[in-house]
Nucleic acid binder design. Structure first.
Lengths: 198, 198
DNA sequence: GTCTATATTGCGATAGAC
DNA sequence: GTCTATCGCAATATAGAC
């Protein structure tokens, strides 16, 4: 029971900070929802800011998995593209709070994300870039492909579906499209778009 | 000079709310930067919230231009796709505060964006969907194209470049790619990806 | 329309008992 | 580790003079 309150605070923080943002979430709300005393936030995490940092870092940790999987094992260029899409799908499926919590940080990065960008995100981009370069060498992709643009493009194609979900759900009569349908179609279009032309 | 303070407050609000967010911006800061008395915020806009609403609505207004331009005049399917990209480029070039202010709303939509989604954004999606359908009928695009997916895809390809700018600028050694280069390449890849296959 | 002064609320943090 | 009680601060909003 001893460290239970710490874990409960962390999980509640992910939910509340994601839904309401850092400033609109008070330590009193947080403590009430987690069923612990509000003074324990300072005790366990130093401050409200410290708790927020722990929450964001815990969510971002999932992205590290991609880097590790992508670097281990033999992966063809297309494998890497598929792996990135599958990782993002997994993240958003298993972690409903990732979008709000982390995308907020993407728009206005704090020191937390600054560090993460340097230490991890950088390699996500690099891995995809390397896969595209290899695809060009192997004659799979167009010789004139602008790799820098294509990396952002692929990340965008995959991410925007999740990013735009909150707003799309607000549009009346908007059909809800399954993520897998979208991603399959997306990979297909991207690959036909970048493949070598005859 | 009479209504000058109102206009100055609005412009300052766009800048500060975009940079620091609603909660981290105080009416005192706002008033100081705009060189007006803080009580004038309540006088002109009712409340801090009212000023925020006015700021977001002013920025979103630019998107309405797209709907109007796209609906007037003869536009081929490809014209529409290009027009959307050009509109977004124009928005982000002329309005450096659009990303932070409006994308924040996209992630956690308030009542303001809720209304905007129903009244305007809906039609942006519809216009692109209609263009894609027409392209299929005319034999330009693949018969098996999933239009719902492709609409999100095109919006994502165009938007993610701007959305990811803040975080990309934090990655060391990341080259800054001109928006026009990206968008040209993007249209090219998207069109080859969705065109009819022989 | 603009200003000063202030009422009121809610926040994060912590001292100190258990 | 957990709790109560409270301090000190900064926020928005507004009443009322000019």
């Amino acid at each position: 029971m001893e460290n239970d309150s710490k874990e409960k605070l962390l999980q509640t923080a992910i939910e509340l900070f994601a839904d309401d943002g850092f400033d609109k979430t008070s330590i009193r709300q947080l403590a009430a929802k987690a069923n612990v005393n509000s003074a324990l936030i300072s005790y366990h995490f130093g401050s409200k800011q410290g708790l927020y940092q722990a929450a964001v870092e815990k969510q971002l940790q999932i992205l590290v998995d991609f880097t590790q999987k992508a670097q281990n094992g033999e992966n063809s260029p297309i494998d890497i593209l598929e792996l990135y899409a599958a990782t993002m799908l997994k993240i958003h499926t298993e972690n409903p709070y990732f979008i709000k919590l982390c995308y907020r940080e993407f728009i206005a990065p704090s020191a937390i994300l600054e560090a993460f960008a340097q230490n991890h995100l950088k390699y996500v981009f690099e891995i995809i870039a390397k896969a595209l370069h290899r695809g060009i060498e192997e004659g799979l992709f167009r010789q004139d492909l602008d790799v820098d643009a294509a990396v952002i493009l692929w990340a965008g194609m995959v991410n925007f579906f999740f990013f735009s979900r909150p707003i799309r759900s607000r549009i009346k009569d908007e059909k809800s499209l399954p993520a897998t349908t979208y991603l399959t179609q997306t990979l297909d279009i991207f690959l036909s778009g970048i493949k070598r032309r005859d």
